[in-house]
Simulated assay, not measured.
Amino acid sequence: MPSRSDMGTRRFGRVNWLGLYTLASREVQRFLAVWTQTLLAPLVTAGLFMVIFSIAIGPRRGDVMGVPFTHFIAPGILMMTVIQNAFANTSSSIVISKVQGNIVDTLMPPLSAGEMVLGYMAGAVGRGVLVALAVASGLAVFLGLLPVYPLWALIFATLGAAFLGGLGIIAGIFANKFDQMAAITNFIVTPLAFLSGTFYSVQALPPGLYEATHLNPIFYLIDGFRYGMIGVSDSSPWLGLAVALLSTLAVGLVALGMFRRGYRLKA
């Protein structure tokens, strides 16, 4: 009869599927337990953005790329909300565990570095997709806005949540205090999200800013999601898909290396 320790490390193939599922489930249950903060609050924030821009700019702005201004900015606001929440999910989970001293509960079980990265990212994708569905439902009700290409919209929403979830893992491991995490959010993540064509078409930018925007991977996420929602974009969705996949893979590999080395995780 196998011992308890043997049963705890039993794997199906080379992956500890039970451990991976448990970590992902914990991350999902963590944000569902406070759904008013993690799901309802982003919906209200996105709604406020839409109301403010519609009242302040909408009547005078006219069409953008052949679509009404409110329809143009709606996908950008939705995607910005998704990526901010995906980043917050992984980064806050890791930072809180480090500050409270219980990160060892994640590091001690028989989970590989890759399984930990996937588990955390699964929670970020779950939260991001649920936020996307909530905001999209609001846009459908109040603006009558339905996705033109639903599959494209779903792909970019998922990749956006995965990319920012991986970036959140890196930031969470790097930060040892809440103020360090706040600095990363305020000075890196938020500017990248705002300066990526969320509220405007990059075609209107001067040459220097136009080229700089195309170096921002979040631009391709928002632009690709906009294509899925309203059928127009500043760049090819296929190029956006390639950039999104490579960016997600890159942050995933960096996070993998940090977990393997125990960077800022082990005393």
Rank of each mutant, 00 (worst) to 15 (best):
V64D: 06
M7G: 03
P59H: 08
F53W: 01
A255T: 10
W152N: 12
G76M: 09
G114I: 05
F49M: 12
L48C: 06
P109Q: 07
F142K: 04
G144W: 06
P217C: 10
V141S: 02
M1V: 01
L253N: 09
G13E: 00
S196Q: 04
A162M: 10
D234S: 07
R10Q: 14
L107K: 13
L256G: 11
F225E: 12
S112L: 05
S92L: 08
G252P: 05
L139M: 10
L48M: 12
V254R: 15
V243N: 07
G144T: 06
T38M: 14
V34S: 11
S97V: 01
A140K: 04
F142M: 06
T36M: 09
I73F: 07
Q203V: 14
P150T: 00
R60W: 09
L245N: 13
I94M: 05
S112P: 02
S137V: 15
V95M: 03
T9I: 09
V129A: 02
V125Q: 03
N89H: 11
I52T: 09
F225A: 00
S92R: 10
Q37L: 08
N102W: 14
P109M: 05
A244V: 09
Y210V: 04
T9F: 01
G119C: 05
L159I: 03
L146F: 13
P110D: 02
N186I: 00
A140R: 05
I83T: 11
M229V: 11
A242R: 10
G101T: 00
M229P: 02
V254F: 12
R26S: 11
V129K: 08
L145T: 04
F225I: 00
E211W: 15
L245S: 04
V141A: 09
I83H: 05
A86T: 04
A41P: 04
F178G: 15
L246W: 13
F53S: 04
L215Y: 15
F163D: 00
L192A: 08
L195F: 12
V104R: 12
G126M: 02
T81I: 05
A171F: 09
L111K: 13
F225T: 02
A242V: 15
A134H: 03
E27I: 04
M258E: 14
